[in-house]
Amino acid sequence: MKLVKVYVTLKKSVLDAQGEAIKSAINTMGYDKVADVHMGKYFELSFADDYNAMEKDVDAICDELLANPNIETYRYEIAEAE
């Protein structure tokens, strides 16, 4: 099995209101060295490992569902599943 780890984050040009709120809470906790926080989403997709169109599928799934290309970007890593 292959495990695809997908990370989706807002583009830099889009204000991350949740990230800002989390940063404010972190600073209030006393961790005043934290200068910036960005919040994103994490997905794990498992594939049968002899599938050669896997990356093509992952790109399509990200473009059409997991990320909204108008506001978000994505990246992914491929690992051996346990």
Partner: peptide, 17 residues
């Protein structure tokens, strides 16, 4: 409708939490 790209842009979290 924006997710469908029938309208331009997107709706995101309100600026003020």
């Amino acid at each position: 409708l924006t997710e469908l790209n029938l309208l331009p842009g997107a709706l995101v979290q309100n600026e003020k939490n």
